[in-house]
Every structure is written in C-alpha cells, then in structure tokens.
C-alpha cells in the first residue's frame, strides 16, 4: 500500500477532500455539534494511515499542497476585516479589552494547570502560545525552549476544540453579540476557530480574523514575561 501510494501525487489531497466531505454529510445528517467536519476528517485520515499502515510522509507528500494555500488564505482574512472596518472603529474598546483579557486568561490557565499536573519548564512553555496561530506559536515555543513538535499538535488541536465547541459555549454562556462571538473564537482558537466564525457570519469572521493577528502579537510580547514563572 505504502509503495503504491508513494508514487501517487493526488492521493493525499483526494483522500483529505473525501474525508472532509464525509464529515460534512455526517454533520448534515446528525446535526450534533460534535459531528464537526474538520474533526471527522482528521480522525478518518489518521484511521486510514493506521489501518493500511501508510507512513504520514507518504500521505503528506501529496496532502502538503493543501497546506501550501494556508499563508495566502490567511492573508485574505484581511478582506472581511476591511469590509467590517466600520464595526471595528465603533467597537474598538470592547475588542481590545476582549482580546487582551483572553490572552492573559490563556497564560494564567496554562500556568495553573502546569502547576497542578507538575509539568516542567519545557512542558509549560510548550502550552503558553496554544491559542495563537501555528506559525507564531512555533516561534514562541522554540525561543522559550519548549517542544516544537508537541506545540504544533497542541495548537492545531486547540483550534479544532474551539471550532467544535464554539456554538455550544456561546449558547450556554449567552454570548449573542456577533462581534463578541468572533473575538471569542479567534482569541481562543486562531485560524481554525476563524473558519467556524466565517460560517456563523461575516461580522463573526472579520472579528475572528482580527483576533488572530492581535492575540498573536500580544502573546509574542507577554509569553516571555511569564515563561520564567515555572
């Protein structure tokens, strides 16, 4: 299986799209918030690799072309933000307060749990930038002396958790303002949360995009200050 697929350029992308499509169909059918297309697709890909004993590198040799579009797609998040610039100007105090409180909360919760679980310094700093976008988070973890490969997994899964649980959290805690929903998703779950925010609405998507940039930059400044705590 491995050798056959290693020769294929299109298999990785094709299987990823099929897995995502299966997730979309399942979500339509079951309408359960845990039936999240990204989550289902990830599980299907991992299950496939394990069951058929295919190397991740073999799969990623084709699938990496999907990852290639991540930077241009992130750049495009400026478009909905520009379209909602009026909203940004009207609510800038609330937006700054929300993002800043979110970043500080993230750092404090990670610190508290690291104490509770008895993590060492490297484990603690690996989790510090967990809510910000992968590329910035990796840089922060590397600089502070954490485990970069664990950080990548943690950051991506954090995004998936936010993407999956967002709507449930908003209904339980009565978050009804679209601006607040966008800030919540982007500050806690970076670009993967933003993918969900885009589906909720244009305002949510724009505010979530803004949070990726702002929360990312604030974390770059704050994380080193808190890294010495443990």
């Amino acid at each position: 299986m491995n050798e056959f697929l290693a020769g294929s350029t299109f298999f990785g992308v094709l299987f990823t799209l099929l897995a995502y499509y299966a997730g979309v169909l399942l979500k339509k059918k079951l309408k359960h918030p845990l039936c999240n297309p990204i989550l289902i697709a990830i599980l299907l890909v991992i299950a496939f690799l394990i069951v058929f004993d295919v190397d991740y590198e073999t799969y990623n040799a084709g699938a990496k072309y999907l990852s290639y579009f991540l930077t241009p797609a992130t750049v495009c998040l400026a478009i909905p933000l520009y379209e909602q610039i009026r909203l940004l100007k009207d609510n800038w105090k609330a937006i700054i307060a929300g993002i800043l409180s979110g970043v500080l909360t993230s750092i404090l919760v990670v610190f508290a749990f690291s104490l509770l679980f008895g993590f060492d310094h490297a484990q603690y700093v690996t989790f510090l930038p967990k809510s910000i976008t992968t590329a910035i988070g990796m840089g922060v973890v590397e600089e502070l002396g954490g485990y970069v490969s664990i950080a990548v997994a943690v950051i991506i899964l954090t995004g998936v958790v936010g993407n999956v649980l967002g709507e449930t959290v908003f209904s339980v805690f009565r978050i009804t303002e679209p601006v607040a929903r966008g800030i919540g998703l982007g500050t806690s779950a970076h670009a993967i949360g933003t993918a969900r925010a885009m589906e909720l609405g244009e305002v949510e998507g724009a505010m979530s995009s803004l949070s990726i940039v702002t929360a990312g930059l604030i974390t770059v400044i704050l994380a080193p200050m808190f890294a010495g705590l443990l």
Partner: peptide
C-alpha cells in the same frame, strides 16, 4: 480554509 488544516492535524 478549513480543509487546509487537515494534513497538519493528521501529523
């Protein structure tokens, strides 16, 4: 965009 995260997550 959502689809673009799947390969890295499967990593």
């Amino acid at each position: 965009m959502a689809v673009m995260f799947i390969p890295a997550a499967a990593g």
